[in-house]
C-alpha cells in the first residue's frame, strides 16, 4: 500500500530513530571493544598501550570471576523459579471468580512500580534488619534467633527482594495468557472426564508455555542486569557480586577500564545469547 512518495516520506520519518539508535549502539560498543584490548587505567597512567587478549584472559582467570558467574546464575535461576511457580499459581487464583478482583489485582501488581532503590532499602532495613526488622520480631515471637539476613543469607535475601519485584510481572503476563484460554476447552476436558489436576497439566500448562517462555526470556535479560538492589544492600559483599556488579567495580571503583571492558564484552555476549531466543519468539509473532 504505498507509492514512491510515501516510501520516501517513510524513510525520512524513520531516519531520526534509526540514526540515534545506531549511534547509541555502535559508538559505545566500539569504544568498549577498543578499551578491552588496552591496558587503560585512567587514574594510574591512563592509556598504557595495546595488550591483545590479555584483559579477556585476566578477567576470566581472576579469582572473582567464577564466583560472580555462579552468583549471577543462582540469582537469575532462583528468581525465575520463584516468580514462575508462584506466578502460575497466583494467576490461576486471580482468574477465579471472586469479590474485589480488581483491587486484588492492583495489590499484587504494586511492587512492580516501586523503584528498585526503594524496595531494596525497605527490605534491607525494615524487614531484614537483625535488630529492628520485622522478620527479627517475627523470629523472636517464635523464640528463634533472628537471622542476619544480608550477611548470613545474603544471596537468599537478594533473591527474595528481586522476586518480590518481579512476581507481579510474571503474574500479570500469565494472567493475561490464562484469560485468553477458551473456557470451552476446559469444559470439554471436564466433559471428557479430566479431573482438575489433569485439566491443569494437559490444558492450562501447555496453553501457558509460550507466555512462560516469554517471561523467562524477558526476566533473564533484566535480571542479568540487576544493579541497584545489590548496590544499596550489600554493595557486592557477602558473595553477592554478580557479573554486572563485578564489571561495575572494575570500571568505576578500581578504574581498570581495560579489564572492565573485557568483562563488558562477556556480558554483552551472554545477553545476546538470551536475546536471540527472545527475538525468535517475538519475530514469529510479528508474522502472525
Amino acid at each position: 500500500m504505498a507509492t514512491q512518495h510515501s516510501r520516501s516520506a517513510a524513510r525520512i520519518m524513520m531516519a531520526p530513530a534509526v540514526v540515534l539508535l545506531l549511534g547509541w549502539m555502535l559508538v559505545p560498543l566500539t569504544m568498549t571493544l577498543y578499551f578491552s584490548f588496552k591496558k587503560y587505567l585512567p587514574l594510574r597512567g591512563g592509556d598504557l598501550g595495546w595488550v591483545g587478549f590479555d584483559n579477556y584472559v585476566r578477567f576470566v582467570s581472576s579469582s572473582a570471576f567464577w564466583p560472580s558467574v555462579q552468583t549471577t546464575l543462582v540469582i537469575v535461576g532462583g528468581v525465575l523459579l520463584i516468580t514462575i511457580i508462584l506466578g502460575v499459581l497466583l494467576s490461576i487464583l486471580l482468574d477465579q471468580p471472586m469479590w474485589g478482583q480488581g483491587i486484588v489485582r492492583i495489590l499484587v501488581i504494586a511492587p512492580f512500580f516501586v523503584m528498585p532503590t526503594v524496595s531494596a532499602l525497605v527490605w534491607k532495613n525494615m524487614f531484614m534488619d537483625p535488630v529492628n526488622g520485622l522478620f527479627a520480631h517475627l523470629w523472636e515471637a517464635f523464640g528463634a534467633q533472628p537471622v542476619e539476613w544480608l550477611s548470613d543469607a545474603s544471596l537468599l535475601s537478594i533473591i527474595i527482594i528481586v522476586s518480590w519485584q518481579w512476581l507481579p510481572f510474571a503474574t500479570l503476563i500469565l494472567l493475561t495468557a490464562i484469560q485468553s484460554l477458551d473456557s470451552e476447552q476446559l469444559e470439554a476436558a471436564e466433559m471428557d472426564g479430566a479431573p482438575p489436576l489433569a485439566r491443569f497439566g494437559f490444558i492450562i500448562l501447555p496453553h501457558l508455555s509460550r507466555a512462560i517462555t516469554i517471561v523467562i526470556l524477558i526476566q533473564t535479560i533484566f535480571l542479568l542486569a540487576i544493579f541497584a538492589e545489590i548496590f544499596v544492600t550489600t554493595g557486592g559483599a557477602f558473595g553477592t557480586r554478580t557479573l554486572t556488579y563485578l564489571i561495575f567495580q572494575r570500571v568505576l571503583e578500581s578504574q581498570n577500564v581495560g579489564l572492565g571492558s573485557a568483562g563488558g564484552v562477556y556480558a554483552i555476549i551472554l545477553a545476546n545469547i538470551v536475546a536471540i531466543f527472545l527475538m525468535r519468539i517475538v519475530g514469529k509473532n510479528l508474522d502472525a
Binding site: 530513530a17 560498543l29 569504544m31 554486572t244 561495575f248 545477553a271
Partner: peptide, 20 residues
Amino acid sequence: ILMWMLSTKMLPAVGVLYPI
C-alpha cells in the same frame, strides 16, 4: 529494523558504562 531496535534494548548497560 524492528528486531534490531529491540536488540539495542538488550545491550547490557554495564557493558557500555565506561564509554558513556
